[in-house]
Design a binder for these strands. Sequence first.
RNA 1: GGGAGAUUUCCCGAGCGGCCAAAGGGGGCAGACUGUAAAUCUGUUGCUUCUAGCUUCGGUGGUUCGAAUCCACCAUCUCCCA
Length: 314
Amino acid sequence: MNSNKIPIICIVGPTASGKTNLAIDIAKKTGSEIVSADSMQVYKEFNISTAKPTLKQMSEVRHHCIDIVSVRENFSVVKYISFAKKTIKDIFSRGKVPVLCGGTGLYIDSLIKNVPFEKGETNIFIRNKILKYMDENGTNYFFNKLKKIDPDSAKKININDCKRICRAIEFYYTNGYPIYRQTQNTLKSDSCYNVCKIGLSFKDRSILYDRINKRVDLMVQNRILDEVYSIKNIGDTAKFSIGYKEFLPFINGQGSLNECIGKLKMETRRYAKRQITWFKRDLGTRWFNVDEYENTQDLFIDVWKYIFNSGILN
RNA sequence: GGGAGAUUUCCCGAGCGGCCAAAGGGGGCAGACUGUAAAUCUGUUGCUUCUAGCUUCGGUGGUUCGAAUCCACCAUCUCCCA
């Protein structure tokens, strides 16, 4: 146990696995606060679609990194990290062990691994020009350019991955050195947190998928469509939110509502799959199969035992 | 009642005598992921004792060296005329 590191309890897992409730139970038990790690719950206007904790839940346990920007603004990992780092420090300074909870793997890993995001604010204008060029003329020109300025990254990035090619080039020209070096530096640097990581998973994938489908039905009942209608001038990062873009065909008269709901369920399931792939990578995570427990109380008891025995609270 | 057309691997859909276990897309499964990440991208997807063999293209029979592809009948569906 490294004493000069801030201890964190971290809950990860796919969407609809029950992270929110588990985190709240843990925070109540330890008298602590929750730091969300969710790239879409940061937006004030998304409530139903992001399955945010309820107002009641948020009044019982303090939540952070939720409702911090408008969908009109662009958000990114960097903004998240600077916000989350301060928050975690603050919670710890008040004698509590923060509970980090969320489904955005990139945000969690970047935070925990201490990724050194430096100067070089993204130039959206240039980025969009490069992406537009690749969309119209193929990736060859920029991929070859990348091979020259950052051959290591070119080896790792697939020739069809426009966004990563674009980012690597953008990185080089704003920072003056290859993005590959940043990755290497991160691997060398030490985390400033001491993390007890808990993952929620399912022995039977179909049970998770079933929960997702039901959750979407519930969102529809809770008038997710009104939420979509109420959003005006959405920005470039929020517009990709699952639960927003799927309803656009209906709103534009290009599809039935049922088709959109079906698509939303499907996209959510696929998202869950990607989350599982991401989180599985971290060998330090202690996994709990949700579908092996009779109820959430039993699950909580086991999780709590694990947290307690980990020594993170000492 | 008469006429025209359809039936393909989990789904949609191409194939119209050999190069077809069958294009392409979707989904599933697996993977990647360092300033858009709920984004983006990759691999794989009939079975097996897997550099080969076996069983598939509504059903049954036939033509042919050879059929998902041609013929006959049957079944189901769609459309058109009554």
